[in-house]
Simulated scan of single mutants.
Amino acid sequence: MITSANTRLTPFAEKLDRPLTKQPITVLQINLGRRCNLACSHCHVEASPKRTEELTPEICEQLIEVIERFPQIQTVDLTGGAPEMNYGFKPLVEVARAQGKEVIVRSNLTIFFQAGFEDLPEYFAEHQLRVVASLPCYLEDNVDKMRGQGVYDESIKALQWLNKLGYGQDPDLVLDLVYNPPIPTQAEFSATPDQEALEPDYKAYLRQHFGIVFNRLFAITNLPIGRTKFHLQHRNLHQPYLQFLEAQFNAATIENLMCRNQLSVDYNGKIYDCDFNQMEDIPAQTPEGEPLTVGKLLTAGSLDVIGEVQTDAFCYGCTAGCGSSCGGSLV
C-alpha cells in the first residue's frame, strides 16, 4: 500500500516530453448506448437498467458506411452499457465480419440470462466474436460487491456455456476476462496488479472449481471518472487518488496508449480519442480545433484527421505502473 503525499497535480500534458500525437486509425470503438441489465459500482459509463440512451438508426447507417469504406480498420470494438441490449449491435457485427474485421464484444455475461438474449452465446460463436468479459475477481464475494448479488454465479454459468461452444479452446473463439481492482475506500492506494502474474491464479482457480478455461486476463485500472469518480469524491479521495496515479507515471506506456490508434464513437455519432474522454465529454479535434462526428469523417473521406490526442488528469490512470487500456497492460 502507498499513501500519496503529493500536494500538487502536474497537468498531464506537462508530463510528456512531446505532444501526444494520433497514429493511423486501426480500431473503431463504438459505445452503443447506456442501457444495461446491471449497475456496477465501478462503471465509468454509469450504465443501468434505467438508462435509455442508445444508438440511432441514422448513426448506425453512418457507422456501417465507415466500416465498409475504410479497410484500415482492423478491429470493431462494441461496448456499452451492455452492447447487446442497444440498437445496432447485430447489424454492426455482421457488416464488420463481412468485411473481415475482428469484432470485440465487451459483455457482462449475465445478459445471456435475460429474456430475449438467450441466443447470444451461439450468435457469438457463429460470427466468431472475440468476447472480452468482465470478471473483476475470481472470488464470488468480491464480484458481487462490485457488480450486484448473484452476478458471480451467472457469470460462471455463462463462461461454462461459452466453453461448451469452444470458447477459450478453438483459436477462432477467443475469450478474455477483465480484472478491475476494488474502488479505494481510504487514502492508501495499491497499483493495479501485474496481469501476467495474476492470470495464472485466475486460470488455476476457475479451472479447478468450475472447469472454466479462457485465453487472456486483462488487468484494467479504475480511472477516476463515472461512478468511480463519484465514490472517490464522496470519500474525499479523488485528488489523492489522482496524485497517487501521477506518482506511478511510467513514460514507457506512452507509445502503446490505445487513444493513439483508436476512434471512440458515442451513440450520437460524436468522435472522441478514447472511451474515457467520451464519458468526460472531451471531444476529439482536428488540428483547427473542430470537434468531429462520424458524418464529418465520411465527408472528409479520411479517418486520420486528428493531430493530437486530448488529455486530462485521468490520463494518469492509463499511464500508471504497467499501464492500462481496453486490452489490459501496456508494458
Rank of each mutant, 00 (worst) to 15 (best):
M1W: 03
I2S: 13
I2N: 11
T10E: 10
K15L: 08
L16W: 09
R18Q: 15
K22C: 07
T26V: 15
Q29D: 04
N31H: 10
L38T: 08
A39K: 11
A39L: 04
C40S: 07
S41H: 07
C43R: 05
S48D: 03
L55E: 08
Q62W: 01
I64F: 03
V66A: 08
F70W: 05
P71E: 15
L78M: 13
L78K: 14
G81A: 11
F89P: 11
F89V: 08
K90Y: 07
V93R: 01
V95T: 08
V95D: 00
A96L: 12
E102Y: 06
E102R: 14
F113W: 04
Q114G: 00
Q114H: 00
G116N: 11
G116C: 10
L120R: 09
E122V: 08
A125M: 13
R130D: 04
P136C: 11
Y138D: 04
L139F: 03
E140P: 00
N142Y: 02
N142R: 15
Y152P: 03
E154M: 14
I156R: 03
Q160G: 02
L162T: 07
N163Y: 04
K164D: 14
P171L: 07
P171V: 06
L175W: 12
L175T: 10
P181C: 08
P184H: 12
A187F: 00
E188F: 06
S190F: 14
S190I: 15
Q195C: 12
V213Q: 14
I220F: 00
Q233Y: 05
H238C: 13
H238F: 14
H238E: 15
P240A: 10
Y241K: 03
F244A: 11
F244R: 04
E246I: 10
E246K: 06
N256R: 10
L257H: 03
R260Q: 05
V265D: 02
D266R: 02
D266T: 06
K270C: 08
I271H: 02
D275T: 13
F276A: 14
N277D: 13
M279P: 00
E280Y: 03
I282G: 06
A284D: 07
T286D: 13
T286F: 09
P287Y: 02
E290T: 15
D304I: 02
T311F: 02
D312Y: 09
F314L: 13
F314E: 04
F314P: 00
A320W: 07
G321K: 04
G321S: 05
G321N: 07
G323L: 06
C326L: 12
G327I: 01
S329Q: 13
L330Y: 00
